[in-house]
Amino acid sequence: MKIVCPHCFQINNIPKKESYAKANCGKCKNSLLQKNLINLGEANLDEVLVNSEIPVIVDFWAPWCGPCKMMGPVFEKVSKNFALKALFAKVNTENEQNLGARFGIRSIPTLAVFKNGKEVDRLSGALDENGLKQLVQKHL
C-alpha cells in the first residue's frame, strides 16, 4: 500500500495491516505513526492525493475563520487516531486561492475526503471530535 510520509513526503510502500507497532519512513526514518497531519498547497496537493492509497481528509480553512480555529485542535487530535489509515491535511485558502477556486470552496471550514485522487465526500461547517471520527470511519 502506497503511503506518503507526513514528514518528508516520500512515497513509501508498506504492507497493509490491521494495526502497526512500528513503521518508519524509508527515506527520513521518522515514524509514520507519530505525525499524521500535513499542509498542502498547489505545489504538492495532486502528488499527495494520487500517491495515497489511504483516504485523505482535507480541511480547507483560513486564519480569520473562528469555526476553523475552533476545529483546528480537534482535527489534529483526531488525526493521531488514524495514522496509516487516513491522512489528514490542511489547505490554507488564504494562501492557496487557486486551490480554493479549483475545488469551488465557498464556505469554511469545508472538509473533503479524497480516495485515489478523487473527491468522494464533502461537508461544510465545523465538526466536533465524534462527528469527525464518524466521517473518517465511513471511508476506511
Binding site: 483560513a62 480569520w64 475563520c65 473562528g66 469555526p67 476553523c68 469551488g104 465557498r106 464556505s107 469554511i108 469545508t110 464533502r122 461537508l123 461544510s124 461547517g125
Partner: peptide, 11 residues
C-alpha cells in the same frame, strides 16, 4: 449550505 449559503460573513 456550504455552496453559497452561509451564516458567517467573516469566514
Amino acid at each position: 449550505t456550504g455552496k453559497g449559503v452561509s451564516y458567517c460573513a467573516t469566514c
